[in-house]
């Protein structure tokens, strides 16, 4: 099986210049590989650096060492050292990412946000929003005023509409009720069946068991009493 995404000895340290240059090592020696149609779940305690790792895979955080090989347009590309242009091309065609929170674009209606991610297909966007129980009357509204769960579902629709070969999911069901959670599980399974390689963080053990093929444990690097630093850092940056 071809590896779609391979992490190789990834290392990440945050240096907080505003706090006297404090260095916080978060990840070191992270290596794994995900094949097409496979779902890898990142596991580990809160603050271990799972979200940080996911963001590094997406090119959102920079790696201080190691490589992130991604199968893109028939070749392997290292996200960790790729030019900004290349990262944008990867995100446009190969790599999808569903964050925990929707970053709202002012004034753009929900359907516009989803359709834009799906190459402008408004019908497909509407179908997906319906599937995620976003009623039609909300489609034409900007999601800024939606509830957390509704925003999360718009975010999921945006992430799933384009059917990218590699998908990163950060707590995709965190703010969903049981019904919508099951819908999302169904969508993840369909994506896998299409051959999508998935790396995800699933806080909900039931969801994880339903979709993940393997676990990759992410372990905290620094002393437990320092951990809240990285939590702060990650939370501050994750906005």
């Amino acid at each position: 099986m071809t590896a779609m995404l391979t992490a190789e000895r990834l290392r990440k340290t945050f240096v907080l210049h505003l706090q006297g240059g404090t260095s916080i090592p978060v990840l070191d020696g992270v290596s794994f590989s995900v094949a097409a149609g496979e779902c890898l779940a990142l596991s580990g305690p809160s603050g271990a650096g799972k979200s940080t790792l996911l963001r590094m895979l997406y090119g959102n955080y920079r790696a201080d060492g190691g490589h992130i090989w991604l199968r893109h347009d028939g070749a392997d590309l290292d996200i960790a050292s790729a030019e900004p242009r290349a990262v944008l091309a990867v995100r446009a065609r190969t790599l999808g990412y569903v964050s925990q929170f929707l970053r709202v674009v002012p004034r753009v209606p929900a359907i516009g946000i989803v359709a834009e991610a799906g190459g402008g297909d408004r019908a497909a966007a509407a179908d997906l929003l319906h599937r995620l129980n976003i009623p039609t009357r909300l489609h034409s509204l900007p999601p800024a005023t939606f509830s957390g769960g509704e925003q999360q579902r718009v975010n999921l629709a945006r992430g799933f509409i384009a059917a990218r070969p590699v998908l990163l999911l950060d707590e995709p069901t965190a703010s969903l009720d049981a019904e919508n959670r099951d819908i999302v599980i169904g969508m993840i399974r369909e994506a896998k069946a299409r051959g999508t390689a998935i790396v995800g963080i699933f806080h909900d053990a039931a969801v994880r068991d339903a979709v993940a093929d393997r676990l990759y444990p992410v372990t905290p690097l620094q002393d437990p009493h320092d951990r809240d630093h990285s939590d702060q850092r990650a939370a501050g940056a994750a906005r």
Binding site: V15, L16, H17, L18, R55, G59, N60, Y61, R62, P84, V87, L88, G236, A237, A238, R239
Partner: peptide, 24 residues
């Protein structure tokens, strides 16, 4: 660098100051 990279994972002290100074 990439906009989200620089704003979400700023490395330079000045960038960290700028990013941390933004009201949310």
């Amino acid at each position: 660098g990439l906009t989200d990279q620089v704003l979400d994972d700023p490395h330079h002290p000045y960038t960290q100051l700028l990013v941390s100074s933004v009201l949310q």
